[in-house]
């Protein structure tokens, strides 16, 4: 029930004094209440749960996380390149 999905704000408007927006979920457009993310503007990505946007997606943080995983990826690839060709790799990882 707590699943929420990302969507892009197309525009904002008021309905019964409540801030609303049209949200594009990869081609499917639906409305959501934006009262809890009043800072959201057209072009922002928000995360929507049961008709309410609960958070504006922080694109900088998203990029940072992806970069970190990219580094982990490179690190592992690097390790593999330097690993001696020995099948009995240390699986217990005594640190």
């Amino acid at each position: 029930m707590c699943l929420a999905i990302p969507g892009k704000v197309l525009d904002t408007y008021e309905d019964n004094d409540l801030l609303m927006g049209r949200i594009d979920y990869d081609g499917t457009v639906n409305t959501a209440c934006l009262a809890y993310v009043p800072e959201a503007k057209a072009g922002d990505y928000v995360i929507v749960h049961a008709g309410f946007a609960i958070s504006v997606i922080d694109e900088e943080e998203a990029a940072k996380t992806l970069k970190l995983w990219g580094e982990l990826f490179e690190c592992a690839a690097e390790e593999e390149r330097h690993k001696p060709k020995n099948p009995s790799s240390n699986k217990t990882g005594d640190a």
Binding site: K8, Y45, W69, L72, F73, T92, G93, D94
Partner: peptide
């Protein structure tokens, strides 16, 4: 879809599985 697909990447998942296996001792 943006903000979904990149978090379903099987290659990244495989790397993190590997990292988890590496750090787990107990």
């Amino acid at each position: 879809m943006k903000f979904l697909d990149e978090y379903r990447d099987p290659e990244i998942a495989r790397r993190i599985f590997g990292e988890i296996a590496k750090v787990t001792t107990r």
